[in-house]
Design a protein around this nucleic acid. Structure first.
Lengths: 293, 293
DNA sequence: GCTATCTCTTTACAAAAACTCAAGTATAGC
DNA sequence: GCTATACTTGAGTTTTTGTAAAGAGATAGC
């Protein structure tokens, strides 16, 4: 299938329907010269004049009308489905870590669905990278330690991971916060089997190694947090995950140490999906939720 | 009318019908990478994947098939008229000087029409530039003094203007050719009212001015040549115009001076018409005729 | 299970196409 | 003749597109 220069053909349909290069230039947001050049290109491609000067303006030659009669409906058809394809962005696939889903996204997601009832959200919460292998998501939110580099087009920092040692008020002896050196004697609640967060946190504070092996270990932040609320020990939690508990007093800072930034959650948008309305709406909503916090 | 990137759409129809980027690359004579990039571009334009990997190959997504179902027929329609427009090159408009037409082109034109009976030649012979003002011709052959520059794409030298002083054999006294210094006493035949050629010629030879005012003046080369054949004087003719007469002996060199190049005939092809089959055939024929001389 | 192979993707760079501004040409109407 | 309108063209710049080569994912055959 041999096709003429298609951009030239597009310009041609505009110039031919207006019978004016300058009008076409206006419509297509390019200079008059651009139209003139493309029309010349097309005429040379065919070896025939498509337009003819008529006084001040132009008229179509017979070849020109023949071409227009086919090219215009053809391109209009394309424009119609194109518009459909661009508009039909009602599905949205999202991948996040389980903890982020439970403690942050799910509680807020109802507000998004209220705003955009027509968008069908498919959420996959996964703790490991394995379960997402081979699959592709419009939006993915993941956690990374180092805040590497500036925000890129398809990767933006959503919120910092600010770790704070917390416990139930009842866990504090006579309401006194725990001295950092006393932490060794407390029951630590691990939100990861490896105790990575506690280890990282204590290293950043230059504490002597904490008794990780004696801690209670959970697979998810949520369970560790619930256990802390129950007054069974000290958890190290992302402040963004325990906003409500802090506000309501069911959790309080266990020590005088303020929250430490150890990493961040990043939003990754699939470049293919980036121009979709649904994706843009969701990402905008995400960041507005962060701002409202 | 908002259209997607049309080249990408073209590549898409090929990739989608073959369900293979590499096949499409072969068909379109570009690299695989080019296809891949254009397909990515198109997917990002729509915000949706058009293809999906399926094992070793690819399959269309639902969006992809929708797009293909419209884009393919649309582009095929365009391809069909395009082919029609390119093929329909049966008309050919030519503009030449009257003398060139009478003495060179017309006698040979029959051979062209025998070769390409389907091509409809419209010849306009004009002596002045005024009659061609505002009109456009596929091919124009004109005369110019200085051979300025090399052959350009749309302007090629057809043949040199080689001026030779000739007369009928009977005009020579006792068969002796005329000495250049004796030309003053001969009857000169001017092929232009101004006598420009004789003047130019005598200047190039450093002759004392010739008695232009006593000469017989004609408007066209042809008449001057016919008059020379009739034995009424000495004409200065383009050798290409009097080939037959020289061969048959009805005209002979009047002096010992060989033909002098004073200019040339150039073929100008309208850039718009240059790609037309008819124009290409005609120009090729023109140059082959020159070579045969 | 390992390797060879097929196919799409990506990166860095090169080539080509398209665009713009501004000056140029042509026509129409006062 | 002068001015306003429109298309054209030249020169330079920007943008797009293409290429080559290395890479990554997946299958098929040994």
């Amino acid at each position: 299938m041999k096709l003429p220069p298609l951009t030239a053909l597009h310009y041609f349909t505009s110039a031919a329907t207006h019978l004016s290069f300058s009008q076409a230039a206006l419509e297509l947001h390019v200079s008059e010269g651009a139209i003139s050049r493309q029309m010349k290109l097309l005429a040379e491609y065919y070896g025939k004049a498509l337009f003819q000067k008529s006084g001040r303006g132009i008229i179509l030659t017979s070849k020109g009308s023949l071409l227009l009669s086919v090219a215009l409906p053809a391109l209009e058809d394309v424009a119609v489905v194109s518009a459909q394809l661009q508009a039909a962005s009602t599905q949205l696939t999202i991948n996040v870590t389980t903890s982020f889903a439970i403690r942050w996204l799910l509680p807020k997601l109802a507000s998004f669905e209220r705003l955009y009832p027509q968008i069908e959200v498919q959420l996959q919460a996964s703790s490991s990278a394995e379960s997402t292998r081979g699959k592709s998501f419009d939006v993915q939110i993941n956690y990374q330690l180092q805040s590497s580099g500036a925000a890129k087009k398809h990767r933006r920092k959503l919120l910092d991971e600010r770790l704070l040692a917390v416990c139930a008020p009842s866990y504090l002896l006579e309401g006194n916060i725990i001295n950092l050196s006393q932490l060794h004697s407390k029951k630590l609640l691990l939100n990861e089997l490896t105790g990575r967060d506690w280890r990282l946190w204590s290293e950043l504070l230059n504490l002597t190694p904490l008794p990780i092996e004696r801690a209670l270990k959970f697979e998810q932040d949520d369970v560790a947090i619930q256990t802390a609320v129950a007054g069974l020990g000290v958890a190290l939690a992302n402040t963004a995950y325990i906003e409500r508990e802090l506000r309501m007093g069911s959790l309080v800072p266990a020590t005088s140490q303020q929250a430490i930034v150890v990493g961040a959650h990043y939003v990754n948008v699939d470049p293919i999906a980036a121009s979709s309305m649904a994706v843009q709406a969701f990402v905008d909503w995400l960041f507005s939720e962060v701002e409202n916090d």
